[in-house]
Computed example of a mutant assay.
Amino acid sequence: MTIRAVVWGENIHERTNEVVAGIYPEGMHTTIANALNADKAISASTATLEQPEHGLPVARLAETDVLVWWGHKDHGAVADEVVERVAKRVWEGMGLIVLHSGHFSKIFKRLMGTPCTLKWREAGERERLWVTSPSHPIAEGVGDYFELENEEMYGEQFAVPEPLETVFISWFQGGEVFRSGLTYRRGAGNVFYFRPGHETYPTYHDATVQKVLRNAVKWAVNPQGSNHAILNAPNVPVEKALEPIEERGPKLHAHGEAGFR
């Protein structure tokens, strides 16, 4: 089965900044989608902030296996309704890949439950990304490390929960280090945060970065599909208990009544 991916881009800098427009004339989201579509196992389309419902209506998300998210300038413009819609799909099993400054996106902070803060510096430094989990599918074919000649620095401490796995750690010319490839599971959904991708540098044209993104999309897919029941909280009647029991003492809810949320 072909993996159905949607690349979501804020698409502001590409329209307002000459440097970014020169690097990504069709938008970063298009460059990323084209890189994903180079793999026949992936079918990637795009969505952007300015579209109705930010390009992510309920029906489209229901047909999305993996959502790739890039945002920076206007995280606050993303409607809370859409954020909750995306979170629901992640809990059900949709994969989510959050890129670079998406660490401050509403959806990433919603799923992490932490401030997601970090140190940063915009100086075009060399970034060396070390593979710390060489057997991980996301790192397949990368080697021991790869380098980006110009990138924005992100430095620890990164205020996120302890990940399931750390796939990459970055070193920058100024001396800082950063956990640049982190995996999580939220509900039935796989989540990957990947650090590189500052808009004034051609990061998403880099062949190794594109390889990592394709690997990540394949990793993020839940092979069991959507688990809609994960959002249910059923009131199990006494007669359906696995072992025979008798009710003892008063109870708050009536037979079959839904619980409070």
Score class of each variant (00 low, 15 high):
Gly95Val: 05
Ser45Leu: 02
Leu148Pro: 00
Lys40Leu: 07
Leu36Thr: 12
Glu10Arg: 05
Gln173Phe: 03
Ala159Glu: 15
Leu99Asn: 05
Ser226Pro: 02
Glu18Cys: 12
Phe172Ala: 10
Gly141Trp: 01
Thr117Gln: 07
Val131Tyr: 11
Met112Gly: 07
Gly143Val: 11
Ser101Val: 06
Glu84Ser: 08
Lys106Arg: 07
Leu61Thr: 11
Val7Glu: 03
Phe104Asp: 06
Ile230Cys: 06
Glu125Asp: 14
Arg89Ile: 08
Thr132Arg: 07
Gly27Gln: 02
Arg126Cys: 04
Glu152Asp: 13
Leu96Tyr: 09
Gln157His: 08
His255Arg: 14
Val212Ser: 01
Ile230Leu: 05
Val191Gln: 01
Pro244Tyr: 13
Ile3Tyr: 11
Phe260Arg: 10
Val191Cys: 08
His13Trp: 03
Gly175Phe: 01
Pro134Lys: 08
Ser135Cys: 08
Val131Gly: 06
Thr64Gly: 06
Gly76Asp: 14
Glu151His: 05
Asn17Tyr: 11
Val19Tyr: 07
Arg15Pro: 01
Lys40Gln: 12
Gln173Ser: 09
Thr114Gly: 02
Glu162Ser: 10
Trp120Asn: 12
Asn215Ile: 07
Pro196Leu: 14
Ser105Thr: 14
Leu164Glu: 13
Leu96Ile: 05
Asp74Tyr: 12
Lys73Tyr: 03
Lys218Ser: 01
Leu182Gln: 02
Tyr154Gln: 13
Asn190Pro: 01
Thr114Leu: 11
Tyr204Asn: 00
Gly95Gln: 01
Val221Ile: 14
His13Pro: 06
Glu122Gly: 05
Asn227Asp: 12
His75Asp: 09
Val167His: 06
Pro250Gln: 08
His205Gly: 12
Leu99Glu: 04
Asn11Pro: 05
Cys116Phe: 15
Arg110His: 10
